Simulated scan of single mutants.
Amino acid sequence: MLTNNLLSIKRRPWPVSILYLGAIAVLLTGWLPTLLGARIGEPLLDVLFLGSSAAMLVRYGARKGVLLAQEIGWAIYLIIGAVLAVLLRGVHPLDFAQAYKFVWYLVLLAPFAWSRAAMAPSDFNRLLNLSLFMFFTVYLIKRLLGDDRPVLMTENNFEIIFLALLYFSVYVSGIRPTAAQTFLLLGIVVLSGSRSAAVAVALVVAFSFDFKSRNAAKILGGTVAAVIGIALALVVFESRSEGGIETIDRFRFFLLFLESVKDWTLADYLLGADRLTPLPPYVCSQLAFYSVLFSYENTGSCYSVILHSFNLRIVYDHGLLISALMILYLLHLTRSASIAQRVCVIGIVLASGLSVSALNNVYTALGIGLFCMAASSRIQSNAVADN
Rank of each mutant, 00 (worst) to 15 (best):
S285H: 11
L287I: 07
D249R: 11
A216E: 15
D268T: 06
V261Q: 06
L271N: 13
S192K: 02
I230S: 07
E242N: 06
V261H: 06
A206N: 04
E242L: 14
V189G: 05
R195Q: 08
A225D: 13
A200Q: 06
L184E: 00
Q181N: 09
S239V: 11
V224L: 15
V204A: 00
L184I: 01
Q181L: 02
A233K: 00
S285P: 00
G229E: 05
A288G: 14
A233H: 02
R214M: 14
C284F: 10
D249C: 01
S285A: 14
E242W: 10
I245Q: 09
T247H: 10
D263I: 02
S192F: 03
A226L: 05
F251V: 10
L256Q: 08
V201Q: 03
V283T: 08
I230Q: 04
V227E: 01
V199G: 07
I188R: 03
D268A: 04
R195N: 09
S239I: 07
S208C: 10
E242R: 13
F253V: 01
T247G: 04
A217K: 15
P281Y: 14
F254A: 05
T277S: 15
I245Y: 08
S208Y: 07
F257S: 04
N215M: 11
R195D: 00
S194K: 03
V224H: 13
D268M: 07
A288E: 15
I245H: 04
G243W: 09
I188Q: 00
G243K: 08
L234P: 00
L256T: 03
S194H: 04
A231P: 02
V292M: 12
K262E: 12
F211T: 08
G193A: 12
Q181W: 02
S291G: 07
I248W: 05
L234H: 05
A197L: 11
V204I: 11
S213G: 07
A233P: 01
R252A: 05
R240I: 06
T223E: 09
F209I: 09
V292G: 15
P280G: 10
L184G: 00
E242T: 13
R240H: 12
D263W: 03
L232A: 03
T223G: 15
I245N: 11
E246A: 14
T247P: 00
V292S: 15
K218I: 12
L279Y: 08
C284R: 10
L220P: 07
P281I: 09
S291T: 12
K262R: 15
A267W: 09
Q286W: 08
V189F: 01
W264Q: 01
D274W: 11
I219D: 04
G193Y: 09
S208I: 13
L186E: 04
R275D: 14
A202L: 00
F254G: 05
G243E: 06
D249S: 12
T223F: 14
L232Y: 06
L276V: 12
D268R: 05
T182D: 04
A273E: 13
L191G: 06
I188Y: 00
A202P: 02
P278Y: 09
E246W: 10
G272Q: 11
A206W: 06
L279N: 07
F289V: 13
D263T: 09
L191T: 01
L191Y: 03
